[in-house]
Nucleic acid binder design. Sequence first.
DNA 1: GAAGATGCAG
DNA 2: CTGCATCTTC
Lengths: 257, 257
Amino acid sequence: MKIATFNVNSLRKRLPLVLDWLEQHRPDVLCLQETKVQDEDFPSLALAPSGYHLTFRGMKAYNGVAVLTRQPPDQVSYGLDDGGEPDEARLIRITYQGIPIINTYIPQGYLIDSPKYQYKLEWFTRLRRYFDKHLSPKMPAIWCGDMNVAPRPIDVHSPEKHLQHVCYHEAARKAYAETVAWGFADVFLKLYPDRQQYTFWDYRQPSSLEANKGWRIDHILATMPLAEKVTEVAVDLEPRRAKDPSDHTFLWAEFAI
Amino acid sequence: MKIATFNVNSLRKRLPLVLDWLEQHRPDVLCLQETKVQDEDFPSLALAPSGYHLTFRGMKAYNGVAVLTRQPPDQVSYGLDDGGEPDEARLIRITYQGIPIINTYIPQGYLIDSPKYQYKLEWFTRLRRYFDKHLSPKMPAIWCGDMNVAPRPIDVHSPEKHLQHVCYHEAARKAYAETVAWGFADVFLKLYPDRQQYTFWDYRQPSSLEANKGWRIDHILATMPLAEKVTEVAVDLEPRRAKDPSDHTFLWAEFAI
DNA sequence: GAAGATGCAG
DNA sequence: CTGCATCTTC
């Protein structure tokens, strides 16, 4: 089974890119973040030629997640369900051929001294409780998406410059690590423990792509029974180099199931 | 001598169209309206390959006029000069090979009961005085541009519906007619007194182009000595049908001089 | 730097 | 419907 994740930064602007990638790679599941489209305006018609089943939850200008699957999902649910802000446009859970797949767009956090950063940190603890409620570390499950955290120094260019950045700050990495520690393994790390490979290059940083000044903040994780079966993981640079790119690119993983 | 006029509705957005048209038609003079670009940002570099000389006056988001000439103009001046608002981004006068050419973007007028409509009506009377000051009806001269007036019922689709429209309202037609009566002749009317031929189709009116629901509000006029020498007048529909069109299209006239 | 929202204008 | 400006977010 092939699973991919991609922060599209507006699905409507990235339709040609997404359709093209689906056709070329035919993943079983593609998780999208930052679709930036309300459900009423979701481009179902434009995506129809792909043949993928569409599961989505969005809002007016920001956030928005979607999961595209070759077959219809068995089950679908949106957002956190602990009684707090559900943030439906940031989390979709489906069950696909018996396997729970959680697609998240973790809050970015703005600045470390802002309420948004507190909200981000809480989001990770809420998510860990969400895993407790809906999954078991002993059963196959996948968690993927834009985590807005570079877990290790190697996962960001010039880490020493980014100690106060909300995507590398100690507390964010700790919050992410503790949620991972619930029972997930990063499948990229599993296959390539020493490789530097980014998934995001800021539009603002001039020539960030050519100079490869990026971040690895998009991740695919699996519980042990599934992580053991990972056969291939890759970042596809081509869509980031294409015309009218997202600032992120595709990450995908293949599992022997 | 071949003279053309075109309301571009943003010159920067219409650069490919304009360059293409210049290459195909090679007019001696092309008058543009609604360039929507400040002089600092005028796309001189992009237009350089055309070889045309560039005369322009614009402002931030609205209005803006330009005259492109095969040879450098003899003389150039901008705006009305009666001590009132000069509205430089609405009028350019050049002398080209001895012939005065006035390119105007007449105020649209918003609604007939608005101050903007009063301003439009005054603009015509000010323009007539401007002609008095700078031209003679007995000498060759050209006045062209977007006049925002459909002079006759045949010049607008469903005229009976547009009696209260600022581009067809009685007072606007009268103001325009009185300025024309200073000493100009509409060269399109001279050659085709009975022909219905629009130059503008509203973006808003759905399928205005397919249904040919348009307006003839762009005009080329000449004083008698020149009007007598007109050999050809045409509206080119192709640019309006092209991809990313302006809501107006090109009108051109050929004079035997 | 890129995207969407809003407001203004034609 | 299209274009520009301003604002906000990442």
